[in-house]
Structures are given as C-alpha cells and as structure tokens.
Amino acid sequence: MSAAPVLNPFSLFFASIFTSNILLANFLGMCSFISISKDGKSSNGLGFAVTVVLGITSAVNWAVLHFVLIPLQLEYLRYIVFIITIAATVQILEMIIDRVSQALYMSLGIFLPLITVNCAILGVSLFIDIRAYTFVQSVIYGVGSGLGWWLAIAALSAIRKKTDKSPVPAGLKGPGITMITIGFMAMAFMGFSGMLQVQ
C-alpha cells in the first residue's frame, strides 16, 4: 500500500466529481443508475440519498479500517465488514429521516434500502483503503463521489427525457439507447481526465 497521496482537498473533491466520476469512470452503481434514471424526480432523490450515505459510510468505514481492521491485521475482512457498516448506516439513517422529515422519507423511503446494495458505496470504501486516504480525504472523496453520482444520474435522466420523445430506432428503444447514451457520457467525462488524476 502506497503512502497517502499528497492531494489538496479541493483537487480531490473536483476529481471525484468530474475526472474520476464513480459512475462514468469506474462504472460502479450502474443498476440503480439505469433503472431509476427513467424518472427525473426519483433520480434527484436517489442522488441525494447516495451522497448522504457515501459521506457517512466513507467516514465510518475509514474509522473501522484504521482502528479495527488494520491493527488486528484483518484487512481481508474488509468486504464483509464494510457491507455490514453500510447496511447499519442505511438502517439508522432511514429511522432518523422517518422521524425528522416525512416528505424526505416519502421521496427516499424506497430508495434507501436499495442503496445498501449499490456497488458505488462499497466501491468508494474500498478505494479509500486501496488509495490509503486520510480521514479528511476519505470524507471529501465520499461526498464528492456522491455528488458525481448525483450529477451523472441527473444528467442521464434529463437526456432520457429527450430520447423518450426522439425517433429512436425501434430495436434500441429503452435500455438500448440508454446504454449508448451512457457510453457517450463516459467519453465526454473522459475529457476531464486530462486535468487531474487521482488513481
């Protein structure tokens, strides 16, 4: 494992949103990305939820990794442990949102359990380990990745709104044209990668 890369927080934040977008550069979290982007309102709800959960789990998993797993030489357990913490975080978050805001609960309610199995969430926690981020970097990277995911799904849902009404060849309607769209988006985001590299 290399030493923590020296990155200024702003660069990392920017990179995690644009140049290393978790969806369009790493292709993580695709399932809900494709299915939910049908609807603009739900996309924003899910994007927000992913951002919140990523922000929290990146902090929690960093702590678990550095205070429990690394001292006990149990890093090989990180997959299972990260999943457990993510599930618990989502559970707690759901209870708190239910209490605090009924409106938010209604818009997120059905997406929150979905997030537990969103690979972008686990992916971010694993990148934190692989890239040996510090705590602050982890949280910035987590929130940034969430915002990046949100940006991507919001963009895709807006594009799908257009393609729904466009003269798409019959065989490509629905998932077909969506996959092609995602490919173009990924290429467009690759244009950012010359600016910064965080791999």
Binding site: V64, V68, L69, L72, L74, L77, I80, V81, I84, T85, A88, Q91, I92, M95
Partner: peptide, 13 residues
Amino acid sequence: AVGAISAALAALI
C-alpha cells in the same frame, strides 16, 4: 472482530 463490529452496530441501531 466481525462479531464485535456487528454487535456494536446492532446496539447502535
């Protein structure tokens, strides 16, 4: 370790 982490999270929940 896994048990302790799960137990701590369950308690938290």
